[in-house]
Write a protein that binds this DNA or RNA. Structure first.
Length: 236
DNA sequence: CGAGTTTGACCTGCGC
DNA sequence: GCGCAGGTCAAACTCG
């Protein structure tokens, strides 16, 4: 299953790669004409993130910076372009703001303001099978979690992010030969999901989309508790 | 035997 | 309203 991740953020920044026990994952820039990630995705460089928050001393801070960048820099075409040009081939991350989920960005703001999205988790749990459940599902869809996605070059589909995931579905997506896999965090009360798929244009590239925010620490925390700046915290 | 994966069926949202 | 595509469920299956 998922092995643990112990990544120093500075390594991540300086080497364009995320070392994990499963191998090295390259952070690859999105070309300007890239069709994925879909509508509204914003691409930012690690450098630009650092410029916003120079005190990026820990991956935890980094995660917050990702969020605030997402909120404060609504993706305009010129932003995207300048980001890409200015990136000079550096590490790029993509923050998803699809048209469908644009309303979720207010929730991202709430997150940053300390109003955790699933703070009252009671109405978010997956409950039994019934019409009631369907009603709840319906209601839940209206408060969809914010998402972000990024692209990595990797032989393995599932990035080791320190959390434990259970696969709950797989779907063949139209116009792609590679199926999309759906994972849910195995932790009780944690509703974070992720989707993993390979890029149609370049099967070496893995697109990972996270939805929601973990309400707990990574599963390998006990093993690696002495290292505050590990990538696992980067993934909320 | 329990935990995780597979996979077909079903549901929902969206575009036309 | 209809059809399509994406997302989820859950029974069956696999594996350690």
């Amino acid at each position: 299953m998922m092995s643990t991740t112990n990544v120093n953020h500075s390594l991540f920044e300086e080497q364009d790669q995320i070392p994990t026990q499963m191998g090295l994952f390259n952070i690859i820039p999105f070309p300007p004409n890239q069709t994925y990630p879909p509508l509204g995705c914003q691409t930012v460089t690690l450098k630009s993130i650092s410029a916003i928050a120079p005190s990026l001393s820990s991956a935890a801070n980094f995660s917050e910076t990702l969020l605030s960048t997402a909120v404060n820099q609504r993706p305009r075409e010129e932003d995207l372009t300048s980001s890409l040009v200015g990136g000079g081939g550096g590490q790029l991350l993509s923050l998803s703001r699809s048209r469908v989920n644009s309303w979720a960005w207010e929730e991202v703001s709430d997150c940053l303001m300390g109003k955790r999205i699933g703070g009252d988790d009671n109405h978010h749990h997956h409950l039994g099978v019934s019409a009631m459940k369907m009603k709840k599902m319906k209601a839940r869809r209206k408060v969809r979690e914010p998402r972000f996605c990024f692209k990595t070059m990797s032989d393995v589909d599932v990035l080791d992010d320190g959390y434990k995931w259970r696969k709950y579905g797989q779907k063949v997506v139209k116009n792609t030969q590679h199926p999309r896999s759906y994972y849910r965090c195995t932790q009780d009360n944690c509703r974070v999901k992720k989707r993993v798929e390979r890029l149609a244009e370049d099967p070496r590239m893995v697109i990972t989309t996270y939805e929601g925010r973990h309400v707990h620490s990574p599963s390998n925390e006990l093993e690696d508790s002495q290292t505050p700046s590990e990538l696992s915290n980067f993934l909320w």
